[in-house]
């Protein structure tokens, strides 16, 4: 349409009028959309935080390889090299028996005195193998083929559980995003339909005057977009405020949880929420317009 830019002010004014004609309902819609997006923002933030935590834990995923103590240092180094060459192994190092003792003493803390009852160091040296969690099965299989290995402590149960948790969190995240997306689409398309029904007479007049459907529909599309963007902004502000307090609360009692930097988390969350609100606003409005037209 040639006069599109000239009509931009008209479209905005029309959108304002449509909102004003059903002000209370539109305010409620804006707040409910805002609350839905707030839930989405919090879910996304938790998703990212948990992904960060899972990633940090996954990086700690390790297997301990105990070798035959009768083999010489050269054989140990050779074994070390072979393990390093296995696909899925990130890092390999030998933990000497003294280091193994110190580690256990550190874990036991005050209770470490029980170790003093032993005449000799009860720990054996071993090879600490840090792995990529998703390659765990391959690594274990390959280790089984190497000679000189007495036994492997694979922590399989823990690692499997870790892998399951990561999967569940991912699926849950997608599920909530889908649920929020559908709810927003339904709300927005319903608002647009209401707006169209409330403005049926002017719409009919414009049709009789020969106005193209796009010219008639565009203000309603703008209404949908403005409502979801408004809801998105409200949600982003609420979520930023909530995250600030969550970080403060977690910093004290749970310092060991590897949280991502708050600024990066908040800015990422704002970008996602605003983009989603714009997309859902446009798609919801189009649904509303097409269903009103088919009626």
């Amino acid at each position: 349409m040639k006069n599109f830019f000239y009509n931009a002010a008209y479209f905005l004014k029309e959108a304002k009028t449509v909102i004003r004609l059903n002000l209370l309902s539109n305010i409620f819609s804006l707040f409910s959309t805002g609350l839905i997006f707030f839930i989405l923002a919090m879910v996304i933030s938790c998703w990212w935080i948990s992904a960060q935590v899972v990633k940090a834990i996954q990086e700690e995923a390790e297997i301990n390889v105990f070798f035959d103590e009768s083999i010489g240092d050269g054989d140990v180094m050779q074994l070390l090299g072979k393990i390093k060459g296995i696909e899925g192994v990130r890092e390999v190092r030998v933990v000497a028996e003294d280091e193994a003792y110190d580690r256990m003493a550190a874990i036991l803390g005050k209770e470490a005195r029980v170790l003093e009852f032993f005449d000799d160091n009860p720990f054996s040296p071993f090879i600490e193998v840090k792995i990529y969690l998703e390659k765990m099965d391959t690594v274990l299989e390959e280790l089984g083929t190497l000679t000189g290995i007495q036994h492997v402590r694979d922590n399989r149960a823990v690692l499997d559980r870790l892998r399951n948790i990561a999967g569940v969190l991912n699926s849950l995240g997608y599920l909530v995003v889908a649920a929020v997306g559908i709810s927003t689409l339904v709300i927005i398309s319903h608002i647009i339909r209401l707006g169209i029904f409330n403005n049926q007479e002017p719409i009919d007049t414009l049709r009789l005057l020969g106005a193209p459907e796009f010219f008639i529909a565009f203000p309603f599309l703008l209404v949908g977009l403005l409502l979801t963007l408004g809801g998105g902004m409200l949600a982003a502000a609420l979520a930023a405020f909530a995250l600030k307090h969550v970080y403060i609360q977690m910093a004290g009692p749970l310092p060991f949880i590897p949280l991502p930097p708050r600024e990066a988390l908040v800015s990422g969350m704002i970008i996602v929420v605003m983009s989603l609100s714009a997309i859902l606003g446009i798609v919801g409005s189009l649904f509303g317009l097409s269903s009103a037209k088919s009626n």
């Binding site: 349409m1 040639k2 006069n3 000239y6 009509n7 008209y10 414009l206 005057l209 020969g210 106005a211 193209p212 010219f215």
Partner: peptide, 9 residues
């Protein structure tokens, strides 16, 4: 004006 906005004017 509204009656003319979508015409080729």
């Amino acid at each position: 004006m509204l009656g003319m906005r979508f015409l080729d004017i």
